[in-house]
Simulated scan of single mutants.
Amino acid sequence: MKLKLSAALLAASLPLSSIAFAQGTAPADVAVINACLKTAEETGGFGGACVGLVADPCIKKAEGVNDDVAKWKACAARELAIWTQKTNEALKKVEAGGFADKIKAVKDSQKTFAASRDRFCAVFDKVESGMYRGDANYCRLRETANRALSLIKLSAAVNEH
């Protein structure tokens, strides 16, 4: 019951596009992020250097004389799917820790996270597309990745023993 409730809360907090992308992550892309996160964990790092490892090379390939903004957005969405998946996994691990106060705090904040992120990131669709390759999708990717990284750290902390 608890897991069903958590899944429902998470699904409600994520835009439909993120949920759809999360279901179709490419194994090779996930492996790139996972390898980076493993290195970060082994060295005590946060994992911030892992953000953009899939989207940035993809965007770089789409740059040139005929910059293709739609491709940039697709590249960002591709990595956003991975970080959305990482967020889902970390939320389950936080809940598995069994600390009611921490679970409540995370659930409460998740209720507003996606809406806040999406309102903020939408502004990048209204500025020069070269300012932030991938526009709002890249913003959502970075915001979601940072959220996932924090949840990963929290999940490790509440499951230490």
Rank of each mutant, 00 (worst) to 15 (best):
K61C: 00
M1G: 15
E79Q: 07
G44E: 09
A11G: 14
A81V: 03
T84P: 04
F46N: 06
L10T: 08
I82Y: 02
R133L: 09
G45Q: 07
D56G: 00
Y138K: 10
A122F: 08
G134F: 03
S18W: 09
V30Y: 05
K102Y: 09
D67Q: 11
L9M: 13
A145Y: 01
V94F: 05
T25V: 15
L91W: 03
D101C: 03
L16F: 10
V94E: 04
K92M: 14
L37I: 08
A8T: 10
A148F: 01
G98T: 10
R142C: 00
A11M: 12
D135I: 00
A40W: 01
G47H: 02
V30S: 08
A76Q: 05
F46H: 07
E143L: 12
R117F: 01
D118C: 08
C75K: 00
G47D: 04
A145C: 06
T112D: 12
C121L: 05
F124D: 02
S17C: 05
S129C: 03
T84V: 12
L16M: 10
V51N: 03
D67H: 09
K71H: 07
T144H: 02
T84S: 12
D118N: 14
L16S: 14
Q85N: 13
G52T: 04
Q23W: 05
D125T: 05
G24E: 15
L14R: 10
S13D: 11
Q85K: 15
N146H: 13
W72P: 00
L37A: 04
V123N: 09
V69W: 06
Q110G: 07
E42D: 15
E41V: 08
H161V: 14
F21D: 09
Q110C: 06
K60L: 12
E63W: 04
K61V: 13
K93N: 14
P15N: 08
F120W: 08
S116R: 13
K71Q: 12
V69G: 04
A62Q: 10
A26L: 14
A8W: 09
K153R: 13
F120D: 15
A122C: 07
F113N: 08
